[in-house]
Design a protein around this nucleic acid. Sequence first.
DNA 1: ACCATAAGTTCTAATTTGGAACTGTCAATA
DNA 2: TATTGACAGTTCCAAATTAGAACTTATGGT
Lengths: 166, 166
Amino acid sequence: MKWDSLEDEPCSLARTVAVIGDRWTLLVLRECFLRVRRFDDFEASLGITRHVLADRLKKLVRFGVLRKIPYQEAPRRDEYILTQRGLDLYPIVMSIVQWGNVHMVDSRGRPMLHEHKTCKKMFDPVMVCSECGEPLTAKAVHVHPGPGARQSSPVHAKAQERAKRD
Amino acid sequence: MKWDSLEDEPCSLARTVAVIGDRWTLLVLRECFLRVRRFDDFEASLGITRHVLADRLKKLVRFGVLRKIPYQEAPRRDEYILTQRGLDLYPIVMSIVQWGNVHMVDSRGRPMLHEHKTCKKMFDPVMVCSECGEPLTAKAVHVHPGPGARQSSPVHAKAQERAKRD
DNA sequence: ACCATAAGTTCTAATTTGGAACTGTCAATA
DNA sequence: TATTGACAGTTCCAAATTAGAACTTATGGT
């Protein structure tokens, strides 16, 4: 599989992975949500090579996740700002952080705490069902092909059988 | 930055990214949640090379996300099954799917629909605050250093200033 | 004896990344 | 005037990773 074809796959996960699914991109996005905006600042806080950073920023702009906004002319300098499309990645970032908080902390505890301005409390992110509000678990969810699906492979037919048995 | 040092960073996102932060790993996990379990089935449904697949499965086992369970002896054959640690990745997978559903669908619509067995309705995953239950947005969240933090860099001090201004 | 199944491993070539130096434009300093 | 520094990249080569295909090992079936 070629990586450019990933965004054309009939799978919402694959298409999103085509945009954000590599290590440096996720770390760049972390910095964006921490309000880092400039090329050299990304480099300094991440230790990413300039080569790869330029590539990742270009890709995020191309996918509409970031927008370049000039903050001075002569010489022209731009900041990279999250678009709404980019801000919508927040649940992904937070669910990654949450898993790390639960499964990857060392004895010193969490590196970072989150306060909800709305209710003024320290919180954890929780993923719930839009219909009933209950927290979601993998076992409580059934998948169905949607209108944009193509017919399932033999492998998935086999897996489907397993799903029925369980 | 070396990739092995990523899991030692004082950042829950970086530590999680060390486990799941590459394209093939995320696609392998998608298959796991679709109940694919065997080496050749992963290969067939993903088109991943056997070399990389073996590497990624080994890594996921090492991090406790998957467990090898024998399904026959002589010759011994194992299936890869999600552990609880792995099942806990579900919010990450679903938030990635959800972003794709919103921002990457084509005219044919969603490739896949999700039904909540608990309430029997088709749903979208929503990330909410554990304390007040409101949906989370990036702008409504304030970050604080936690007990496992190290002091912030000049870059982040600058970003912190911006956060106050906004 | 020959073929098939399953889960890898090994090999070489192509691609991507790391690390460092270089470029272009402007402002401030010596 | 010449030099230095800031900023946002680009360019270059070596090192690491991935793609693609063939090979291995153990066993059962015809």
